[in-house]
Amino acid sequence: MSPAEAQTVSLLLDGHAHQGILGLPGVPTGLVIFAHGSGSSRLSPRNRQVAGTLQASGIATLMFDLLTEEEDRTQANRFDIDLLGRRLVQACHWATAQPSLAPLPLGLFGASTGAAAALQAAADAPQSIRAVVSRGGRPDLAGEALERVQSPTLLIVGGDDTTVIQLNRQAQALMHARCELEVIPGASHLFEEPGTLEQAADRATAWFGKWFRAASMA
């Protein structure tokens, strides 16, 4: 498969321009929108690595900044899940307004606090989001939204990230949607150990591929 084309895009979210990177394979089978974690951005090297794996399988990706530079200077904004979730829903609306992206099934990939934002967005846009993946995420921060999520959800956690494993199990117990917990042995919170991020990316790619195929056959 030929390399994905990278396009710089601008999304108008809550009245402000947010920069994004759209990765488009030749014939995309779906689109995954990324929600980065606290203190990160569209340039997150780990998310970019996951995006590359998704693109290699034929899935388009969109990475964008959830906060403006000014907003990011206020620590509380990084943990405002309602705000971040709303921005994600707006990004989904942006994607569905693009002729090349509108027909594609949508998925959300969240890391750290971005996982809670992804689940909040999935709860608020249940007809739009076909699947959600969390990597080293804090789904527990989504609160009451967990019970409203209808999208099949995969929670990927490092085996050495014991506190976050427990928080993910608690969140999983509150969800009514299909939800699986995948523990990557030997991985810490940031999946910095050799081969662990690749395993997480492969699990995410398989999950999105499965539910995007189901959507295309519906």
Rank of each mutant, 00 (worst) to 15 (best):
S2R: 11
A4F: 03
Q7P: 02
T8E: 13
G15R: 08
Q19H: 10
G20H: 04
G23P: 08
G23Q: 09
L24R: 09
L24V: 11
P25D: 05
G26A: 13
P28M: 00
G30S: 11
V32Q: 01
F34C: 03
H36V: 06
G37A: 11
S38H: 09
G39Q: 02
G39T: 06
S40A: 13
R42M: 15
R42D: 03
L43T: 00
N47Y: 02
R48V: 03
Q49I: 02
L54Y: 00
L54P: 03
G58V: 04
T61M: 06
T61D: 13
D65I: 07
D65N: 13
L66S: 10
L66G: 08
L67R: 03
E69S: 12
E71Y: 04
R73D: 09
R73P: 01
T74L: 10
Q75D: 13
Q75G: 01
N77M: 14
R78D: 10
F79E: 13
D80L: 07
I81H: 12
G85M: 06
G85E: 06
R86Y: 02
T96A: 14
A97S: 15
P99H: 12
P99S: 12
S100P: 06
L101W: 04
P103G: 15
L104H: 13
P105I: 11
G107E: 03
F109R: 11
G110P: 06
T113V: 15
G114D: 00
A115V: 07
A118S: 15
Q120L: 05
A125D: 05
A125E: 03
P126D: 04
S128G: 09
A131F: 12
V132E: 07
P139K: 00
A142L: 04
E144D: 15
E147W: 00
V149W: 08
V149H: 00
Q150Y: 02
S151W: 04
T153L: 07
L155K: 07
G158D: 11
G159V: 00
G159D: 02
D161M: 11
D161S: 12
T162E: 12
V164F: 05
Q166A: 15
Q172R: 15
M175V: 10
M175G: 09
H176Q: 15
H176T: 14
C179P: 04
E180W: 03
L181V: 09
E182Q: 12
P185V: 12
P185M: 14
A187W: 02
L190P: 04
L190W: 01
E193F: 08
P194N: 07
P194S: 12
L197V: 05
E198T: 14
A201D: 03
D202T: 12
A206F: 02
G209M: 05
K210W: 08
F212S: 11
M217Y: 05
A218C: 11
A218D: 13
